[in-house]
Design a protein around this nucleic acid. Structure first.
Lengths: 207, 207
DNA sequence: TGCACTATTAACAATCTTGTTAAACAATAA
DNA sequence: TTATTGTTTAACAAGATTGTTAATAGTGCA
């Protein structure tokens, strides 16, 4: 039988949608089952408990989140500022494809702090090394006169702040912001340019 | 009797804490009652339903959120950039005092889109006017050669992105970031300076 | 004091939600 | 075919959660 795989996947996908938009507590397993087109007993048959089903979704998303930041640390032959520019743009595009991801993760950690440990394990162990590597690259670029000094953690926070906010705030600010732009598409493109500009400005000027 | 006011307030305060950290769905009225030190029947006596109690908290918070942005539009005799600098700092301080507020509001809108209408009513009606006013001030400052051109909505998004992110991401990134700074206090002060620097840089340079 | 009103409690009811189970069903291989 | 294995369903059970109610206690005031 092949149906079993499809049903399991259907449940997973429905669960992902529900969990990401509503969060763990607000999501009802019956709703997931309904959305997936199966009886809710099937959900328990495949995933045993709501908690286990949630973890399948959650762990996958943590992995995604991790990848979204690693883009800044792929070594190339480009000048530092150029590499950061590409990093910002690809991070922005990633968020556009997964706009609810950051909020989802932060949220579940808030209401259930034990979940933080998975993030620490997955991201924490590489974060320290990665920041040190980036700091090394920054220092080198500074010495060569390409950019002004900046703390690696500040640079990352600057970039991620500007990028993430565009997507998390969007549902709230949509009605006020969209009239300022030609279209949603125009808004996102314009913001991508503005974010790159902000960071380049920071890297080049000594105010 | 005076106790009634105290009990009602105790319930409201407990509700605020619970709703803001856990969200509507994950919050149990019994827990609120326990935290407030009253029987859960009292909660229903004063607020009728969980929904009504939630709205008391929610509406108050929306009002706060509105005030947090208005700080940018209080007219003074200071030069434009100076005024914006003060606005950023006071917005930052406000968020430090209410770190969970933005996430809370965005979250509840996500899981229950009808709530957006209250935000639209409260903030939407003033947002358009306010953006127009700001744009006027920007254009004037540009003409006088104080700053470079910028779209009002972009400037606001830049500021709010940088400020909000520091507090919403903090629980997630704490373990990786704090070792980079002397203390939590040092981290926040350093970020406040960095955020001001970013915006001043944007306003002064033509990259 | 006694009346009217509000506050408070404990017990209860209704519903929702998660999870289980036993039996029916399908596919497959011996 | 029959035994075995895995899938599916419907019905149920336990517990949590919100909300009600009827009886009780307290308060202010005529």
């Amino acid at each position: 039988m092949k149906e079993e795989i499809n049903k399991e996947k259907a449940i997973l996908q429905a669960a992902e949608e529900e969990f990401i938009t509503k969060g763990f507590a607000a999501t009802k397993t019956v709703e997931i089952a309904k959305k997936a087109g199966v009886t809710h007993a099937m959900l328990h048959y495949y995933f045993r408990t709501k908690e286990k089903l949630f973890n399948c979704v959650y762990e996958e998303k943590i992995e995604l989140l991790k990848q979204s930041v690693q883009v800044f640390f792929t070594e190339t032959s480009l000048p530092f500022a150029e590499r950061i520019k590409l990093g910002i743009e690809s991070h922005f595009d990633f968020l556009r494809a997964n706009p609810r991801l950051p909020m989802f993760v932060i949220n579940e950690i808030m209401s259930n702090p034990e979940r933080l440990s998975l993030v620490e394990k997955t991201i924490g162990e590489i974060a320290i090394n990665i920041l040190a590597t980036l700091q090394g690259q920054i220092d080198k670029a500074v010495k060569e006169g390409e950019i002004v000094p900046v703390k690696a953690s500040d640079l990352i926070i600057d970039i991620v702040s500007l990028n993430i906010f565009v997507f998390t705030i969007f549902p709230l600010a949509k009605f006020a912001l969209i009239p300022q732009y030609d279209s949603e598409e125009d808004f996102f493109n314009s913001r991508k340019r503005e974010n790159v500009r902000m960071i380049m400005c920071r890297l080049k000027n000594n105010d």
